Computed example of a mutant assay.
Amino acid sequence: MKFRSFVIAAALGLATALAGCTAGGPLKVFTSDYGTVRDAGYQLPRIPINQVPRQYHRQIVTYDTKEKPGTIIVDTGAKFLYFVMEGGKAMRYGIGVGREGFEWAGTARVAMKREWPTWTPPAAMIGRQPELAKWRGGMPPGLKNPLGARALYLFNKGGDTGYRLHGTPEWASIGKAMSSGCIRMMNQDVIDLYNRTEIGAKVIVKR
């Protein structure tokens, strides 16, 4: 019996090691942090967070990974973004991801960070949605801007990936696949992530 117990324990340990990044239950949930926020002259409206599934509320979770603290890991399948912290923990945020045909995966770095960024729709997007041509020169910052309150710009060895981690006024899109490839976050969450993230931070996007 002792030998059998040892074999089972060893198998479980191997399975955990092979799993790579694994997340446990919440240690702290920040459901009360989605109220009205005054920021840089703008007033972000309260998010009716009770209408957002609880798993997508910002929370600290146990998280097993070999990546160093400060790394961002995006799980597009589960619709979670993890900011790796010390002590086997991570701050987990609910996200919206690219719709079918716009998914992507890979490793990048945060090359730039912008508060209340200007949004410039790519030429391909204007081709699909001609009504966006009026913003060819850039849509000014504001509460209706698709990039929301903050944006983190992702670059790799080839330069600008064109993808961003950014806020959105469309809080109901969190947990869904609706974007053109960028990772959407509730504005209150992207401000929190922005304040934690350093330029040069590693970003891993997994499908």
Rank of each mutant, 00 (worst) to 15 (best):
G158T: 10
F102W: 12
A108H: 05
E100C: 03
S5V: 10
A111Q: 12
D75W: 04
P69K: 05
G138V: 13
G41F: 06
G13K: 03
A15K: 01
S180E: 15
E86F: 09
G159L: 07
G106N: 03
I72V: 10
Y82I: 01
G137P: 07
E198P: 14
G25N: 12
V205Y: 07
T118C: 03
Q55S: 12
Y56Q: 03
G137W: 00
P117M: 00
P122S: 01
M91S: 08
E115R: 09
I60A: 01
T31K: 15
R58N: 08
I73T: 08
I47K: 03
K134D: 11
I72N: 01
A177Q: 10
G13A: 15
N195E: 14
N195F: 01
V97R: 03
L152C: 04
R207H: 12
V205F: 01
I47V: 15
A78E: 15
K89E: 13
M112A: 09
A15I: 03
T16D: 15
M125H: 02
E198L: 09
K2H: 13
M85F: 06
L18G: 09
L132S: 06
G200V: 08
I183H: 09
Q55H: 10
S173R: 00
G127F: 00
A78S: 14
G87N: 11
R109I: 03
G77A: 02
S179P: 03
V37A: 09
S179Y: 06
V110S: 06
M112Y: 15
W135S: 07
H166I: 05
A90M: 01
